[in-house]
Amino acid sequence: MKYFLKVFSIALLCFTIVMGAGVYTYFNFFDDTANANDKRGDHPMRDYTQEEIENLPAFEKAIANSDRLNVLLIGIEAEGRSDTLVFASFDPKTKRIDMISVPRDTQYHEQGYDSADHRKLNAVYIRNLKKGHERAAEKTMEAVEEILGVPIDNYATISYDGVENIVES
């Protein structure tokens, strides 16, 4: 059991460092933040007029006025389930990245999936993958977007096979 915890802790640390470095590198060297609004999704909050934004609650107003780029980092287990979900938000003005972990067991219900193991956030990815959807990661991103109430612009996935190779070498 100690060996498992040690390997798991090292793998999680490596995953967080690699993903953080990857997001940091992408936003600092490869992303054209001047055209950031052209890359945004179709989240309804992005279509508000300035008058509508002024009437929003403070939290929603801050999101609507923000130029932040939001990314969901998804760690995939060998069985195909999403195991680690990290919401990363990059502020192009300050060059700062804020990251929070989204618990995989967060309750998320979709109609027709009523059993306890299907009512978890990590079930969204594997369910759509088994259906043959190529958009399993996008469906997970949409679910997290709905839960957090914050528009997410993109996602990145990483397999734990890669993390395992890092730990064993």
Rank of each mutant, 00 (worst) to 15 (best):
Y125P: 01
L5D: 14
L121C: 03
L73C: 14
G80H: 03
Y155P: 02
V124G: 01
I97P: 02
V18H: 13
S169A: 10
N28Q: 14
R68C: 14
S89G: 06
I10F: 09
N128H: 15
K139N: 04
F15V: 02
V144L: 09
S159R: 08
A137G: 06
D153S: 09
K61V: 02
A34T: 14
A34M: 11
N70W: 05
P44D: 04
V23C: 05
E146T: 13
A123K: 01
L13R: 07
Y26M: 07
A36I: 12
Y26H: 12
A11W: 03
G80K: 07
V124I: 15
L5T: 13
F27H: 11
E164F: 07
L72M: 11
N128I: 00
I10S: 11
I147L: 12
L121N: 02
N37G: 04
F29P: 00
S66E: 08
T157L: 13
T140K: 02
I126P: 00
G80C: 09
A136G: 05
E164S: 06
A36R: 03
E145F: 03
F4C: 06
P57F: 04
R119S: 11
L56N: 05
E142S: 05
A156W: 08
R46G: 04
G162S: 10
R119P: 01
E145S: 13
E146C: 09
A62V: 10
A34K: 12
P44S: 03
I63K: 05
A62I: 10
T16E: 13
D105L: 05
Y108P: 00
F87E: 01
P57S: 08
Y48V: 05
H133F: 10
D153R: 10
A58V: 15
N37F: 09
S159H: 09
L13A: 14
D161C: 04
N165S: 15
G162P: 02
E77F: 10
P92A: 08
G41S: 10
K93C: 05
T49W: 07
M19D: 02
L72C: 11
F87V: 01
D98E: 12
C14M: 12
H109T: 09
V124P: 03
N35W: 02
G22K: 06
Y26D: 07
E168R: 14
L121A: 07
I147S: 03
I17D: 04
T140H: 04
Q111K: 14
A62N: 13
A36S: 09
N35I: 00
